[in-house]
Amino acid sequence: MRKTIHIAAALLLDPQGRTLLVRKRGTKAFMQPGGKIEAGEPPVAALARELFEELGLQIEAEDAHYLGQFSAPAANEPGFEVRAELFQVHTAMPVEPAAEIEEVVWVSARKPLTLELAPLTQDLILPLYRRLPRQPA
């Protein structure tokens, strides 16, 4: 039986309809911004905390629209599964990599990606993103 890492993650969208992917320092795979939910912490509060710590982005709970729970093998912890509470968040604010984030990239649903992606991002979240109603890109 796999050990589970419970996280809150953002399908973060900019005004052009692109979504933000992040790569943590010392890793290769890009993934959604977000992070571990602490004991007793509501997922949306964990998301707001992580977005501020990782990207300097401040959001309110009402800015996050819950999309559901998604699970996949963890990208950076062999033998672990990541279970993500996924929220859609729109922002026009600039983001800057901070804390453990080494690189950020905005990607479009219409363009093929050559980046190495975390399983959760590649297999579940990006396909969901591509099915969202089209916005400018």
Rank of each mutant, 00 (worst) to 15 (best):
K111A: 15
L132G: 02
F30D: 05
F52D: 13
L86M: 08
P78L: 11
G79Q: 07
L12H: 06
M1H: 08
L86K: 05
E102C: 01
G26D: 11
D63E: 14
R18I: 06
P73G: 09
R25S: 12
I101S: 07
I125F: 03
T114L: 10
E50V: 02
E50F: 00
T91G: 08
E102L: 09
A74M: 00
H90T: 05
A8Q: 02
V107F: 04
A9Y: 03
K24Y: 10
L126E: 03
F80C: 12
E50N: 15
S71Y: 00
L47K: 05
L128D: 08
E77M: 10
R131D: 12
A92E: 13
I59D: 04
A92Y: 00
H6Q: 14
E38V: 00
L47N: 07
K28L: 13
G40V: 06
L115A: 09
E100N: 15
F30E: 06
A98W: 00
A10F: 02
R2E: 15
L47W: 02
P112Y: 06
F80R: 04
L21V: 10
I101N: 04
F30V: 11
E54C: 04
L113N: 02
R49E: 12
L20C: 06
V82R: 08
L128W: 11
A64M: 10
L11S: 07
V107L: 09
L115I: 07
K28G: 09
M31A: 13
G34Y: 02
R83T: 14
Q16Y: 00
A74T: 01
G68P: 04
L20M: 05
E50K: 13
E62Y: 00
Q135M: 13
H90N: 14
A84F: 05
P133D: 07
F87A: 06
E77F: 12
L124S: 09
A10Q: 08
A48R: 14
A61D: 11
Q69P: 01
R23G: 06
A61M: 02
Q32C: 15
V95W: 04
V82Q: 10
I7Q: 08
E85D: 15
E62K: 10
H90F: 11
M1Y: 03
T121F: 02
